[in-house]
């Protein structure tokens, strides 16, 4: 069925990022930042703001932070750090790297408060920054040995039928996801995905960032995000078959 190969009516989310080129040559809020911080912030700007704005509690917290209030900073770390650590752990897979990423994120956030315009909640803004920090750490660390994604993709007969169809997992498979033991096995399966695909899967299906945002964060094309996501989902389905199958 050729038409869908390049179907022109592919619906986008309508999101348009501002892009690096729209940043002013000299950005006051970037004064004094290290190179990595600047990049991290510019990438953070690619992420679209959500419709949720700041609560009055968050607004007063931001005012205090901007005035250099040390107590307000500590409140922020304690209040938002746990969720940020969770996100970093999900993306990085180990506690030490995750803690480093959270620390980097708070340093960056503090230095860039002038650039925070309050068009998203403080929690969302910090979430974006820690995702960036985790991705930068992912890029810098040594790659482990990985199996090719191809090994986990479905295979087909010459006539296009599935070569090895598997039975439906059934309702009990979904129900078993409520058990800690099953969830741990699922995490292990996710961890077996090649990092390039695992990262896209976690950003899209777990962090629920949209395709354009993930493309901006990873500096890859929108089509590459879609291809990696679909392959990651297919590969995970294969890996989960022994866990969730009948």
């Amino acid at each position: 069925m050729p038409p869908i190969r390049n179907h022109p009516t592919h619906k986008g989310s309508g999101y348009r990022h501002r892009g690096f080129k729209n940043l002013p040559a000299v950005t006051p809020g970037l004064a004094g930042l290290e190179g990595d911080d600047s990049l991290l912030l510019m990438v953070a700007e690619l992420i679209p703001t959500d419709v949720v704005t700041m609560s009055s509690e968050e607004e007063s917290l931001v005012v205090s932070l901007r005035s250099g209030d040390a107590a307000a900073f500590e409140v922020t770390v304690r209040q938002y750090g746990g969720r940020m650590l969770t996100v970093a752990r999900q993306l990085l897979g180990n506690v030490d790297d995750a803690q480093d990423a959270v620390q980097d994120a708070f340093v960056t956030a503090l230095r860039s408060l002038d650039r925070f315009e309050g068009r998203s909640s403080l929690a969302t803004w910090l979430h974006r920054i820690v995702v960036n920090a985790a991705l930068m750490k992912l890029r810098s660390r040594r790659r482990r040995h990985e199996q090719s994604i191809e090994e986990f993709l479905p295979t087909y007969l010459d006539d296009g039928h599935q070569a090895r169809p598997v039975p439906r997992w059934g309702e009990s498979a979904v129900a078993s996801l409520e058990q800690d033991e099953t969830r741990q096995l699922v995490r292990q399966c996710i961890d077996r995905l090649p990092e390039t695909h695992r990262t896209v899967l976690l950003l899209r299906d777990l962090q629920e960032l949209d395709t354009e945002t993930v493309a901006g964060l990873l500096e890859i094309s929108i089509d590459a995000v879609k291809v990696r996501l679909h392959r990651a989902r297919q590969a995970l389905r294969t890996l989960l078959d022994p866990v969730l199958g009948p």
Partner: peptide, 13 residues
Amino acid sequence: NFRATLQATKTAF
């Protein structure tokens, strides 16, 4: 199974 896989990712963590 593909749908269940998406659900598994969401609930894994």
